[in-house]
């Protein structure tokens, strides 16, 4: 369960020199919620603030303003507890090429506090669940993008977190791998996990998500289920609805009405 309220984050623009430090507001005002047992899509064009939002929720960077809770734990104060509840797979997450898939995953398991035996049995479980048995003992150098994504996902799931956030996980995956990943995400949601899935592709979100929060220019433009979005934007076609939602955001017309 995630509840984000008025999150804000600004960065210093790189290359500004010592005296001309320009600030860029990556996230201006993001509020949304994601429930257990469902997949919530965070949809937005490139540079809309999706990754920054997820990084704040994952306690990787500190918000400048606003607050958020994960399963009732505050991201500003209960940092380690939040991380224990949360499995986060960042955008293009790298794995260690000189370690085998098993070593990559069990390293994370050990860091999450599992002992050696438990870590190994958890790796075996994940290898079955994510269909990785074929390459689990191989070193990650030369893995396909699909195999790398599976290892990264297994790492994020290794401590059995209740809440799972995936930042553009289907990037670079072929059709079959994307389908496979979708099935896995659906299964996890059905098991009762809260899943946040970010993407810039409308069709992908439509195929998987129960609820969608569309983010543009650092604010949530609209948040609803798919039917709700169609109704409120007045477009039957989801792509048109998306275009309208992100276009309307800076003016603030629809944003005022849809934010919770």
């Amino acid at each position: 369960m995630i509840k984000a309220e008025h999150l804000e984050k600004a960065f210093t623009k790189p290359g500004g020199g010592l005296f001309k430090r320009e600030q860029v507001k990556a996230v201006q005002d993001v509020s949304f919620s994601a429930a257990d047992g469902s997949v919530t899509g965070l949809l937005g064009p490139n540079g809309a603030g999706k990754s920054t939002t997820l990084r704040m929720l994952a306690t990787l960077i500190h918000p400048d303003g606003g607050s958020a809770t994960i399963d009732g734990l505050d991201i500003n104060t209960d940092v380690l507890k939040v991380r224990q509840q949360l499995g986060f797979m960042p955008h293009n997450a790298g794995i260690y090429p000189r370690l085998s898939a098993r070593e990559n995953i069990s390293y994370y398991a050990r860091l999450c506090g599992l002992d050696k035996a438990k870590a190994q049995s958890r790796v075996n479980e994940l290898a079955d669940q994510l269909e990785m048995t074929e390459f689990i003992e191989r070193r990650a150098m030369g893995f396909s993008q699909g195999q790398r994504t599976k290892v990264a996902l297994a790492r994020a799931l290794v401590h059995q977190p209740q809440t799972i956030m995936l930042d553009e996980p289907t990037n670079g995956l072929d059709v079959m791998a994307t389908r496979g990943l979708r099935t896995i995400i659906r299964e996890l949601a059905d098991q009762g996990h809260c899943i946040v899935f970010s993407s810039h592709i409308m069709q992908e979100v439509a195929a998987l998500c129960d609820r969608v929060a569309i983010i543009a220019h650092g604010t949530i433009a609209i948040e609803d289920d798919l039917d709700g979005i169609r109704k409120r934007t007045g477009h039957d076609d989801l792509e048109d609805a998306f275009v309208q939602a992100i276009g309307a955001a800076p003016v603030g017309t629809s944003a005022a009405g849809v934010s919770q």
Binding site: R55, T59, K81, R83, Q84, C112
Partner: peptide, 17 residues
């Protein structure tokens, strides 16, 4: 190297100081 490989972000998201 860890930053460049983008493996630092998931590492720092783990429950450790």
């Amino acid at each position: 190297g860890e930053r460049e490989r983008m493996s630092l972000e998931p590492l720092l998201a783990l429950p450790l100081d």
